[in-house]
Design a protein around this nucleic acid. Structure first.
Length: 521
DNA sequence: ACTAGATGGTTCC
DNA sequence: TGGAACCCCTCTAG
């Protein structure tokens, strides 16, 4: 209706239908020159109309018309063809078919980022090793070591403990919101996106401010400093934090005052997202950030451009951790869908010992994924990390939590629960108990091994698939469960019914801490 | 049952 | 160098 009433001053509207023969033009000076690609000639708002197949076409066109009146642009093609929502081209469709995601064939593989195949047929997806890129031989130092690596090592049976995978949900909290930060015994040091560090006493609930990077308040985004990376060096009694402009700050935990000047540890203006103090060598600090680098620093000589080593990545580095027992290995998670492992910080650090392709290429709405070491693994090879792309699991699209042997890239276990459909980018294993805490910004789950009922193993033996029962709106056992006593530094809710709690999972030195704060406090 | 919007790194101009 | 457009598997309020 509306298009017919338009005058010559309004742009021509060409409608393309799903079948090529059915074409109509609503403009008065119709010249049928619509051989172009349906959506190639305009700004993109026509896509909306194109997607609106079926009902409401006329209303859509009226809206379209109104938009055109405002802009006075010409000409516009409205396509009623179905187009791929990813590449906007007809002939195929991407998206979920049931619980299976069908990839757009026009895009590179969503997993390994290489062209020529889709995620479904990606060699890294179907390979047993889950896509490991082996260490280059030049990482060996001497001919002797080369011989050892090549000829002797494979014959030595690896001492690999049987990994215990916490795979059953024992309590779950969905919908919580909180930003605290690391915890140390009865106190929490919190680094905040408002640029402050505060110290909170868990007994009294009182907090004191240690540092404020925005003393003048909001002066615009160019000056507002936000804290991201944080760790505590208890040996040196300092809290280390880093901001979104590439600078590192230190606060003495005894005097609760800032020590020294800010040090530029990453490219000026780039976000420093992770700090980790070496668990064995207190003088070593690891940082990572948005400038695509992870850097190893000597705490005794901390100044700009004085890093001991620079570990380059292809994309932003989400996290970087020393290994928990010897502190000799490094595990990083980068946004190029690769976990990287350096086997020895005292060896050749020019290139990673291994790159493991793994889907953690988060979209911007998610907390960045962080691969973390299993602190109980004496071989320092097991790592846990949430997976971004989903798997069709009995008709449900689930995002498992992967346990990966970083020595060979093998997927040891994938943990999931049919009731948990959310992505869990942050996962933490308990330092001694077989407990996994996993969560995102809005949810938290505690997993334990399923000893009572046998885990349902798929025919594929290398994988363990779990069926559990999570209570979606209410947690059970947490706080009432005496086993939780061993959560160092955490505090129980003393038998109270736990309703809406704020939760934060964090580690302090070697301990997993689950801090719970009642909304009242 | 549907969609807009929050959100941030990257790329292109 | 800065601004704008772009972006594949979210999540949820409306």
């Amino acid at each position: 209706m509306a298009p017919r009433t338009r005058r010559n001053a309004f742009p021509k509207v060409v409608i393309e239908r799903d079948s090529e023969s059915e074409q109509s033009s609503s403009s008065s000076d119709d010249d049928d020159d619509n051989g172009e690609e349906p959506l190639s000639d305009s700004e993109g708002e026509e896509v909306v109309a194109a997607a609106a197949a079926g009902s409401g076409k006329e209303e859509k066109m009226e809206e379209e018309d109104a938009a055109v009146k405002k802009k006075g642009k010409a000409p516009i093609t409205i396509s009623l063809k179905k187009v791929c929502k990813v590449c906007k081209k007809p002939g195929h469709e991407a998206g979920f078919k049931g619980a299976t995601y069908v990839d757009c064939p026009m895009k590179p593989c969503f997993l390994c980022k290489m062209p020529g195949h889709t995620t479904m047929s990606c060699p890294h997806r179907v390979a047993t090793e889950h896509g490991v890129i082996p260490a280059p031989l030049r990482s060996t130092h001497s001919p002797l070591e080369y011989v050892f690596q090549r000829q002797l090592r494979p014959k030595i049976p690896p001492i690999k403990p049987a990994h215990v995978i916490p795979n059953q949900v024992c309590c779950a909290v969905i919908r919580y919101h909180s930003r605290f930060n690391p915890v140390n015994d009865g106190t929490i040091y919190a680094a905040s996106s408002d640029g402050t560090i505060s110290c909170i006493d868990l007994e009294t609930g009182l907090s004191s401010s240690l540092m404020n990077l925005n003393p003048d308040g909001w002066q615009g985004p160019n000056t507002w400093r936000m804290l991201y990376g944080m760790d505590i060096n208890s040996e040196k009694s300092v809290v280390l934090v880093a901001d979104n402009f590439g600078f590192l700050y230190m606060v003495d935990t005894r005097s609760n005052h800032k020590t020294g000047d800010a040090i530029m540890v990453h490219k000026k203006g780039s976000k420093v997202v992770g700090l980790h103090c070496n668990p064995v060598h207190p003088e070593l600090l690891l940082s990572c950030g948005n400038d695509h680098f992870a850097r190893i620093w000597d705490m005794r000589r901390l100044e700009a451009r004085s890093a001991l080593h620079e570990l380059p990545h292809k994309r932003v580095v989400n996290s970087a951790y020393f290994s928990p027992l010897t502190g000799c290995k490094i595990l990083t998670t980068a946004q190029d869908n690769r976990l990287r492992v350096w086997d020895s910080i005292f060896g050749d650090l020019d290139s990673p010992s291994r790159e493991i392709v793994h889907s953690h290429d988060f979209n911007r709405h998610l907390t960045p994924f962080r691969g973390e070491w299993d602190p109980k693994d004496p071989s320092e090879s097991l790592a846990v990390i949430g997976r971004y792309i989903s798997e069709n699991f009995n008709g449900a699209a689930l995002h498992p939590i992967d346990f990966i042997d970083t020595s060979n890239g093998q997927l040891v276990a994938e943990v999931m629960d049919p009731n948990i459909t959310t992505i869990t980018p942050v996962n933490k294993l308990h330092p001694r108990d077989d407990v996994l805490a996993s969560g995102s910004s809005r949810s938290l789950f505690i997993w334990r091994p399923n000893w009572t009922s046998e885990a349902e193993e798929q025919k594929d033996e290398r994988r363990i698939v779990i069926c559990g029962n999570a209570e979606k709106t209410r947690k059970k056992g947490f706080g009432d469960d005496s086993d939780d006593d061993d959560m160092d530094g955490g505090f129980k809710s003393k038998g109270k019914k736990t309703k809406s709690l704020k939760l934060e999972v964090r580690e302090s030195k070697s301990a997993l801490v689950i801090a719970k704060a009642n909304g009242e406090t």
